[in-house]
């Protein structure tokens, strides 16, 4: 884990938020690389394409909920069918501005979601999630 670069994947349809969140992550130095995806489909196809190249795959995903075509929950339905080797090596958090009670409960109940983060993204919150997630996993 320490020898290769840490990658995070951002999945969001909003260009401004992608820009803001990449900048926050870059400034906080929590990851070395950022993979930017403008839709859930783009995220899935990136993972599938590089499934045999672990050094290109993310260790962490920040997923938006409200997106056109494939929303965050639909993404998760397809995400869980990815190879186990990948699912075991990658953790996923929701990053959304939602205030919807149903969305929040649904995200918390999903076994593949380690945490629901609310926009705006604060580095200390992200750091705390990463610590909690990767310390308990390893």
């Amino acid at each position: 884990m320490q020898t290769r670069t840490e990658k995070v994947m951002l999945i969001d349809d909003n260009d401004i938020d992608l820009k803001i969140n990449s900048k926050v992550i870059a400034l906080s130095k929590l990851f070395d690389d950022i993979i930017i995806c403008r839709s859930g489909a783009e995220g899935l196809s990136y993972i599938k394409k590089h499934i045999n190249h672990p050094n290109l795959l993310p260790q962490f995903i920040l997923l938006d909920i409200q997106m056109p075509e494939m929303d965050g929950f639909e993404f998760l339905e397809l995400y869980k069918n990815l190879p186990l080797s990948f699912l075991n090596s990658c953790k996923l958090a929701i990053l959304s501005s939602t205030l919807d009670f149903g969305d929040i409960k649904k995200a918390e109940a999903n076994p593949y979601v380690v945490r629901l983060l609310k926009k705006p993204l604060y580095p200390n919150e992200l750091e705390e999630v990463l610590k909690a997630t990767f310390n308990s996993a390893h």
Binding site: N14, Q66, K119
Partner: peptide, 22 residues
């Protein structure tokens, strides 16, 4: 409206956060 109005506002708050970080 609460959702559509809030999303760009949250982006503004995100930019403010960046301003502080920088």
């Amino acid at each position: 409206i609460s959702h559509e109005l809030r999303a760009p506002l949250v982006s503004v708050l995100g930019i403010l956060n960046l301003v502080k970080m920088e």
